[in-house]
Design a protein around this nucleic acid. Structure first.
Lengths: 70, 70
DNA sequence: GCATTTTGTCAATTATATTTTACTTTTTGT
DNA sequence: ACAAAAAGTAAAATATAATTGACAAAATGC
């Protein structure tokens, strides 16, 4: 359920969870929870994250079995 | 803000709001609100809708100014 | 090894997505 | 024109996304 693509995209820009959280104006815990796969963010937040990380929805949030863990 | 692509994709399959609502197990009002653009659904619900309608997240929920009204 | 940053985690609160019921307005078919 | 289905709308209740604060564990740099 982990979103490793999000983690990777963030790493590619050398951003910490805190950096991303501030960029999209949510709490650090929210970013952590999304990466961990604990719960489902709103589409609005997903879009904000995509814009900051320079990715599309399909690239970060489309789910095929290839891109997930656990 | 209206999501006309969702409406169109639904029309293409000859599904009513009620049909789609039942297929993704939410209320008809939720589908209506999403099409109207009133609020932001969760990514999980967006993914369910995509699967039922045979579209990707980018096709239905990516926002460039081309695809929206008002 | 030590200090600092980053990440992981938890509980309690707040904001908001979603439901339910109910009613009105449009659309569609005959 | 009429009936039936579909779509639009609204208020109150419920479920859950997101916040906040605080602390522990792991990673990074010196």
């Amino acid at each position: 359920m982990k979103n490793l693509r999000l983690k990777a995209a963030r790493a590619l820009l050398d951003m910490s969870q805190k950096d991303l959280a501030e960029a999209v104006q949510v709490s650090r815990q929210t970013i952590h929870a999304i990466e961990k796969g604990d719960y489902n963010p709103t589409i609005k937040l997903c879009l904000s994250i995509c814009h900051v990380l320079g990715k599309t929805l399909d690239e970060l949030f489309w789910e095929d079995d290839e891109n997930e863990v656990e």
